[in-house]
């Protein structure tokens, strides 16, 4: 884990300097929230699931922006080769990149979720601590899958196009679950109504952590 933390620290330092990924993620996510607000009708009362759908579309689409950059940065000057040449195990690189993607998403969400409440009404801000739990579990699922797929596409010419094309079909179940649970929270439903979906979200993250951990070496290295 020491090596993963070193690599993650390096990535976060570079992002702190340039603020490229997070600023573009927040800006794009906010734009989506505004555009969807106009599309459904400003001031219109939405039910919980529809509001949750809007929130997650904004979060996931903005997260894909950051996802592509985390590994493509390593392709500059072939730094990925230097990491693979070092005694660091490829799994540690995967863990580092997953951590960084998770943190980027969490930071963007820290801005986007309050903005969502402002635009769509604070009546949705009913179970905020549980919403934080849901968001963090979805982030784990998204960043574990997303890091693996961004490694697959990082070496391709049409990285930005290919990544969402490959990623979205895989994360659609996660997105559907996230909408279901968040909709329940927005409707102020009791925990037992959505708890089973929450476990599935957690399982999704757990399974793809394992898959990513096992496959990353084969994905990142040339044949």
């Amino acid at each position: 884990m020491r090596d993963a933390l070193l690599i993650a620290r390096k990535d976060l330092l570079a992002e702190y300097r340039k603020k490229e990924s997070i600023v573009s993620m927040v800006f794009f996510g906010f734009l989506l929230l505004v555009m969807l607000n106009i599309a459904v009708g400003v001031g219109r009362e939405l039910d919980g699931e529809m509001a949750a759908g809007i929130l997650w579309v904004s979060i996931i689409f903005s997260a894909v922006l950051g996802l592509g950059r985390v590994l493509s940065k390593e392709k500059e000057n072939r730094c990925i080769d230097a990491l693979l040449l070092s005694p660091v195990e490829p799994e540690q690189i995967y863990a580092a990149k997953t951590m960084v993607n998770f943190i980027f998403m969490a930071v963007a969400e820290a801005v986007l979720i309050p903005a969502f409440f402002v635009l769509y009404g604070d009546r949705f801000a009913r179970q905020v601590p549980m919403l934080v739990v849901v968001v963090l579990l979805v982030n784990i699922g998204f960043s574990t899958v997303g890091t693996l797929f961004s490694a697959i596409t990082a070496g391709t010419r049409r990285n930005e196009v290919l990544l969402p094309l490959l990623l979205f079909p895989v994360i659609t179940p996660l997105m559907a679950l996230a909408v279901k649970v968040t909709g329940g929270l927005f409707e102020d439903l009791p925990y037992r109504e959505y708890s089973s979906w929450l476990y599935v979200i957690a399982a999704f993250g757990l399974i793809f952590s394992g898959v990513g951990y096992l496959l990353f070496e084969f994905v990142i290295k040339e044949g």
Binding site: K10, E76, N77, A82, L85, S86, P87
Partner: peptide, 28 residues
């Protein structure tokens, strides 16, 4: 092992010192 290529393997957003300290830490 050490490798020198025509690619620098350096991070543009970090300083020279930060690059070397990062790699030194990776190599323990």
């Amino acid at each position: 092992l050490g490798v020198i290529s025509h690619q620098s393997f350096l991070y543009n957003d970090l300083s020279a010192r930060e690059n070397l300290e990062f790699y030194a830490a990776l190599y323990r």
